[in-house]
Design a protein around this nucleic acid. Structure first.
Lengths: 241, 241
DNA sequence: CGGCTCCTTGACTTTCCTCAACATCAGTGG
DNA sequence: CCACTGATGTTGAGGAAAGTCAAGGAGCCG
């Protein structure tokens, strides 16, 4: 299996063979992690950068009343915040969804790579900007879209991101997220997301069963949700010089 | 008036006189901007970094159906994304609320300063991490808190941030946000935020009139909203070495 | 065949939205 | 000085979207 992290960064900046190689080496020590394991918890001191080479994870926070909000999904190729280790404490937790392959890059190593290879630095910054744009897009969804629109929007986002990292097979992607997790990401109850997904299925917009998502009517979904993939920056600005 | 931007960064890293001076010079060309003017619009090509030396602004997006979601408030001392100019297009707009004093720092200038002064780089990265944490906190609020809790949480956040940049006078802060804006930030209708604010006032938790916010019962608000200022990183991790 | 986890359904309740007035205040120009 | 205007804040009544509670079904695994 190719290194999905490197592949993703390649999409953001031209990486020389040397640069790609440095990244490959930095992520060579990847560890397999079981499903539903916290990689790091709220309150912990941040450590190295996590890189998801395979499998899914999510950022979340549990409120005093026990409800959980998911703030981001990490799919293969995604990494966590670059500079996170400057902070005293994590303000949220990160947990795997599936069996995963997670590499860790110590801060000094990452710094050295970025200092030595401007292409890598550029790609990492772009990845971070996109993550930030994604957070803002979620805020828009949670604040101003109905539950049906929100669900449609999230599925389109996940599909678009999956396209970027090349994990679409025959028009379908693996979506290993149970309905409870979708509910916790979308600010709904499990009961309600269940009904919403049924609506989307019945309308013929999506196919979703046994963890396989198929967007059968993209136009309808886009129209419904007002999805504009701009925040995922599918067109990037060319590097200067 | 002291340069609030420099003051804020000072809170994140020890800045030498030289470093502070470089920042002062970079923001010396600040322009006055009228209220309700877009600094930049969705779809525009990103330019220099904006720095709010005085006045308030907000990031927002307008949906096809005309509703607006605010994703962040910028108060005096705040700056916009460092690396934003690498992207092809803005995925949201930024508008002033009040009369404002806005400096712009061209990307190469900022790069040069950060390369020359590690303290500045560190402070800027911390500021960005906090902004990101704030986005996540908003997601949590929008997804999993009731309208009353959400409003209380936002007021506490704004107050905490105001404390950091030193714009509290006699226990009160200027909050120049009309109820419609609070509503658009909190994902509610103006009618509803109005009733919620009345509840908070009547319960004795806050005083809010003529743009002046006073937190009269912090404990009650904290208990109610589950506010944990951790994401604002009031304790930072000391710089290495 | 239990014992999981995950999904589905129905009935009822609550929160928040919608619509439609009206009140208040500051600024403007006659 | 006052009438007018526009922005902002307030109130009430009715309705719709989503939550809660409770039960059961489907699939998988030891």
């Amino acid at each position: 299996m190719a290194n999905r992290f490197v592949e993703k960064l390649r999409g953001f900046a031209d990486l020389s063979a040397k640069e790609a190689d440095a990244l490959e080496r930095a992520t060579a020590d990847a560890q397999p992690i079981d499903p539903r394991k916290d990689l790091i918890r709220e309150g912990d001191q941040p450590g190295p950068v996590f890189v998801m080479l395979d499998g899914w994870a999510f950022r979340y926070k549990v409120l005093p009343n026990g409800s959980r909000q998911i703030m981001a999904f990490l799919m293969p190729g995604d990494a966590c915040d670059l500079h996170i280790s400057m902070l005293a404490e994590m303000d949220h937790s990160i947990q795997t969804v599936t069996q995963a392959l997670v590499a860790t890059i110590e801060r000094p190593v990452m710094d050295a790579i970025m200092a030595a290879y401007p292409g890598v630095a550029r790609a990492m910054y772009i990845a971070q900007l996109i993550d930030e744009g994604t957070l803002r897009a979620w805020i828009v969804s949670l604040g101003r879209r109905s539950s049906l629109e929100r669900a449609a929007h999230l599925l389109l986002e996940l599909y678009s991101r999956a396209v970027r990292v090349g994990i679409i097979n025959e028009g379908a992607m693996e979506l290993p997220l149970p309905q409870v997790m979708l509910a916790d990401a979308l600010g709904m109850t499990p009961v309600h997301i269940n009904r919403v997904l049924q609506d989307l299925r019945r309308s013929g917009a999506i196919g979703l069963q046994r963890g396989l998502l198929r967007i059968t009517d993209p136009d309808a979904l886009i129209r419904l949700s007002g999805f504009d993939g701009n925040y995922l920056q599918r067109r990037l600005r060319p590097a200067p010089r």
